[in-house]
């Protein structure tokens, strides 16, 4: 059960500092966000803001972005009406100086339904380089005007868990315990079969005798004398 709790806590905790030791490196990360609301196959990207993750290990981040303008909201609404996708381009700059471009999208109606609340998840690989930047929104789906034009953005940084290893130590301990228990048992047990199991045999015998006594065919004196 304990492992399950670890997993759950892992999933719940936004900054998974509990298992930060899996990551050998620490560094910062900067994301520049561009988004597109146009309802066409070719996106027209507009600057949205930027996210700075000061420490990838702790996941601490600062989000700086402007609110949406009314024309953009209208565009978003038309996009949502046509069941279109809001696209987000993220250009990540790592502490090593690499620049990587990511693209992610989600149905526009979810953004409207959650009043511009979204979660940006950054997945890192074992070398602390970003491999995925993805956007998600809790929803629900709606095409109405949002209450606010300000973004509520959560940034989550995730990195790979350590792989499982065969748990031989616990198993060997368990075997040891069992062996010890058996040895302890065997040390005392050099008595005969009857001496060892008399406590089971006697009640069984009594039961057999009793049942035969109550048997009408057997009947008679033997049974009654037993009862006396």
């Amino acid at each position: 059960m304990y492992t399950i709790y670890i997993f759950i806590s892992l999933l719940v905790s936004v900054s998974s500092s509990a298992r930060g030791s899996e990551l050998d490196y620490d560094g910062w990360l900067q994301l520049r966000l561009w988004h597109a609301f146009n309802d066409e196959s070719e996106p027209i990207f507009v600057e949205r803001g930027n996210v700075t993750v000061s420490s990838v290990r702790s996941g601490a981040s600062v989000v700086g972005q402007n609110g949406l303008l009314q024309p953009h909201i209208n565009q978003l609404k038309t996009l949502a009406k046509h069941d279109g996708k809001y696209r987000l381009k993220a250009v990540a700059r790592t502490s090593l100086g690499n620049e990587i471009t990511f693209l992610t999208s989600l149905p526009a109606c979810y953004l409207l339904g959650s009043d511009l609340e979204d979660v940006i998840t950054i997945w890192l690989d074992s070398a602390a380089e970003p491999i995925v930047v993805s956007i998600s929104s809790p929803g629900p789906c709606s095409t109405e005007n949002p209450f606010t034009n300000m973004w509520t953005t959560n940034v989550v940084v995730k990195y790979p868990d350590g792989g499982p290893v065969p748990d031989t130590a616990t198993y060997i301990q368990k075997l040891e315990r069992e062996r010890e228990a058996r040895e302890r048992g065997e040390a005392k047990d050099n008595r005969s079969f009857l001496a060892r199991y008399w406590m089971y045999i006697v009640p069984a015998l009594i039961f057999v005798v009793l049942s035969s006594a109550t048997n009408p065919e057997a009947g008679g004196a033997g049974g009654s004398s037993q009862r006396q």
Partner: peptide
């Protein structure tokens, strides 16, 4: 990174990473 193995679970419709694990 030699002799490491990474396994990623990716949702290929939404593009969201579901899980990642690394063996050393």
């Amino acid at each position: 990174h030699k002799n490491t193995l990474n396994l990623y679970l990716l949702d290929v419709v939404s593009g969201a990473m579901i899980f990642s694990i690394m063996h050393k």
